Simulated scan of single mutants.
Amino acid sequence: MVTTTSTERALPELDPYQEGCPSRRVLDRIGDRWTVLIVGTLSTGPHRFSEIRRSVQGISQKMLTQTLRGLERDGLVTRTVYAEVPPRVEYELTEGGRSLCAPLKALEDWSIAHFGELATSWDTYDSIAR
């Protein structure tokens, strides 16, 4: 079976449960912890690199750079360079990136709401002698 997009380009039927399905790349991107946190940060509007790094504590400069480049390649983030001295660079979510905010916010909210249950489960599991 073939699916078509608005540009009428034929795409294979996508099923992320099948090994080798290209849609897994999408899940890898949006399921990455750094992506979740960066999209959450950018959901409030454009940010400079240093602002994102301060907001997403624990991310290395290298990982932030790689993740932003990946998000830009995926069309979820735009990078704008302003001709100023010193140069100013801002990152902003595209329409596609903004469409991720609600589902990722739901995951964030779920993780906060259920943290206590999970922490209890972790302690119980870890206390069992193996």
Rank of each mutant, 00 (worst) to 15 (best):
T3E: 13
T3H: 07
S6E: 09
T7L: 02
E8Y: 14
E13K: 03
D15F: 08
P16D: 02
Y17W: 13
Q18T: 09
Q18S: 08
E19G: 01
G20V: 10
C21I: 05
P22Y: 12
P22L: 01
P22M: 02
R24W: 09
L27K: 00
D28F: 11
R29D: 05
R29F: 13
R29G: 04
W34P: 00
L37I: 03
L37T: 08
T41I: 06
T41N: 02
T44K: 04
G45V: 10
H47R: 12
R54L: 09
R54D: 15
R54K: 04
S55N: 06
S55I: 04
G58F: 07
Q61L: 10
K62E: 11
M63Q: 12
M63G: 01
M63W: 02
M63T: 15
T65I: 01
T65G: 00
T67R: 10
T67Q: 07
R69Y: 13
L71W: 08
E72D: 11
E72V: 14
E72N: 05
L76I: 05
R79Y: 09
R79E: 15
T80A: 07
Y82A: 11
Y82H: 12
A83C: 00
V89I: 15
Y91H: 14
Y91N: 09
E92I: 02
G97A: 10
G97E: 12
S99F: 13
L100A: 02
K105T: 14
D109K: 05
S111T: 15
I112A: 02
I112R: 06
A113M: 10
H114P: 04
G116S: 13
E117L: 10
T124M: 03
D126T: 12
R130L: 12
R130G: 13
